[in-house]
Write a protein that binds this DNA or RNA. Structure first.
Lengths: 157, 157
DNA sequence: ATCAATCCTTCGATCGTCGAATCATTCGAT
DNA sequence: ATCGAATGATTCGACGATCGAAGGATTGAT
């Protein structure tokens, strides 16, 4: 019994992605932020190293000028400040302010609570299976993406 | 031991969602379609009942007028036709043309191949775990979403 | 010193989306 | 039957998020 064929798993992944996007749209609208700004805020906060506009542009898959606008809005709203890097003064380092962390936690906390409850019945082995599935699916997507945008590196098996 | 804590699972989900969105953006751009149009096309094709502009607007979480524009573009590109419903002639039923199915399969087939390969090592039991995880996570997101948009069931801010 | 390269920003223009108003159709009430 | 309200979809004018090209500042190499 193929209770979870490849096709059905694909549909489930798609449903999750679509619902997540819907959530991002509606939630950020309820906080007077554009979805892009919310995504950017999240990226800036969770980056290991201080984020720069250039790196943010790549992460958002947007032009540099559009990213400037995003940062203008975030700065005007008091969520982010721009500091010029002391080492390389062409670069701008982005830092989040407390207002932003408040918004972000308002964003993630309800989700985290529901997720925690939804996942409470998972055993350690189950979590391992799920984690591998998620990582494998993400990198499979990345592989297809790379093959599309860079046809040279598309090698058959 | 907690190789996959709630937090880590959340990050993995987020990474998958972001990568999927990046894929949608880049892929639809490479086919001269807006991401919204690609999403709409997908929704129209996979709907069980003939899709209408109104239902599509809700599914896309967009205004009715914006949905009209989406359909104008899809129709102009030869992907969709509008037929007035014979029963209720206010309604418009949407049908996809062969050009659209070609685009959609160009979209999904490479993904399906990579997914199939990435998931080939999953046992039936693993698939069951993953399927339940995906469904539970999606509906957890929906629950939070409903709590936000329906203040009646939301507790204190 | 000079020239190229890098990083970010400004500027003008495009186009996707929205809200309000409009047209057509259906349904309910009298 | 007829009128009015409700529903489904579209047009219209406006806004604004994003883009590409050009510009200014800083760094590094020769």
């Amino acid at each position: 019994m193929s209770d979870a064929s490849d096709y059905e798993l694909s549909m489930l992944v798609r449903a999750l992605v679509m619902e997540s996007n819907r959530f991002l749209d509606i939630f950020s609208a309820s906080h007077s932020l554009h979805p892009t700004d919310m995504t950017a805020l999240n990226l800036i906060m969770t980056a290991r190293f201080p984020m720069t506009p250039g790196a943010l542009a790549k992460a958002l898959n947007m032009s540099a000028s559009a990213t400037t606008s995003v940062l203008d809005r975030l700065e005007r709203a008091g969520h982010v400040v721009r500091d010029r890097s002391p080492e390389d003064r062409r670069r701008v380092e982005l830092r989040v302010l407390s207002a932003a962390t408040a918004v972000a936690s308002a964003f993630f906390q309800p989700l985290a609570v529901e997720f925690s409850s939804a996942w409470s019945s998972l055993s350690a082995a189950d979590r391992e299976v799920v984690a591998r599935f998620l990582a494998a699916t993400t990198s499979a997507t990345t592989r297809v993406l790379d093959a599309v945008s860079d046809p040279a590196s598309a090698h058959e098996e």
